[in-house]
């Protein structure tokens, strides 16, 4: 290479430099002012303890967070597993009928079984606790995302696939360059959709002993503490409404 072409890097670099400069200025002034971040964190921790004693968190806060964690974990692993299965189920990328046909059949069966039934089954297998709930949600979101995704994969522009093949790309490379960029927005959108459903499912999974806020429901109802039931209904309603609204907004901006 005798005459190299120097191309200015994308504008992103300017932004990064700007951010770095700001950070540098902040750090330098902090050192100059003998500002110690560790002391602040320790102070905040003390403050936090005092705050928690001043305003104790309601009893439903922990289980609610557990419910959301279950929904996030379940959706994440389910959607991740769905990607390779969707590729294998789509007719246009890896065309192996003896893999595709049983896979599609299996996905159809998965989607006919509600998450609650899975949860009850896994409670029987793995015992009471949120692990059983998470597994149920993984399977549910896997079935949903895999089905929607393989249909999107079958609808991609085949020309880009053909072009990549003509470059001498193998199947994995074709997936990376010609399939992934085309389906990524849908993939994220389906995952968020599964998350919306999972938050709602996770809220009642506790009924069968699979962890989360549903356990509180069950207990409050059993003990006929209706003021607690009312509180839980309102909390679940607000959280689900808020997440639905947020997720729907993100999904609209993607497609």
């Amino acid at each position: 290479m005798s005459d190299r072409i120097i191309v200015p890097p994308p504008k992103r670099l300017g932004q990064t430099l700007g951010i770095l400069t700001v950070i540098l200025v902040i750090v330098a002034s902090a050192i100059f002012a003998r500002f110690n971040i560790i002391e602040v964190i320790l102070g905040l921790q003390r403050g936090g303890r005092i705050l928690a004693r001043m305003f104790p968190l309601p009893g439903w806060f922990g289980p609610l967070m557990e419910t959301l964690q279950m929904a996030v974990t379940g959706t994440f692993w389910g959607a991740l597993l769905a990607f390779p299965i969707a590729i294998l189920s789509a007719r246009n990328i890896v065309d192996v009928p003896w893999i595709r046909v049983p896979l599609r059949f299996f996905l159809n069966i998965l989607r006919t079984i509600p998450a609650m039934v899975f949860a009850a089954m896994f409670v029987a297998i793995f015992g009471i606790g949120n692990f059983s709930g998470v597994i149920a949600l993984v399977i549910f979101s896997f079935g949903l995302v895999a089905k929607l995704l393989f249909e999107s994969i079958e609808a991609i522009d085949e020309g880009q696939v053909e072009a990549l093949r003509s470059l001498g790309a193998d199947t994995l490379t074709v997936i990376r360059y010609a399939v992934l960029p085309q389906i990524l927005p849908q993939y994220i959108s389906y995952t968020l959709y599964a998350f919306e459903i999972n938050v709602r499912s996770a809220a009642v999974l506790g009924y069968v002993g699979a962890g989360g806020i549903g356990q509180l429901f069950e207990r409050a109802l059993a003990w006929r503490r209706f003021h607690e039931v009312g509180e839980l209904v309102i909390v679940s309603f607000v959280v689900v409404l808020f997440l639905d609204f947020f997720s729907a907004k993100v999904r609209r901006s993607l497609i």
Binding site: D157, G159, Q160, E162, A163, R165, S166, L167, G168, Y177, A178, P181, Q182, L184
Partner: peptide, 16 residues
């Protein structure tokens, strides 16, 4: 195939 370039009517570049 890598020795054979190909261009298409619909360009077939990866738009995203």
């Amino acid at each position: 195939r890598r020795k054979i370039g190909m261009i298409f009517q619909s360009f077939n570049i990866v738009k995203r």
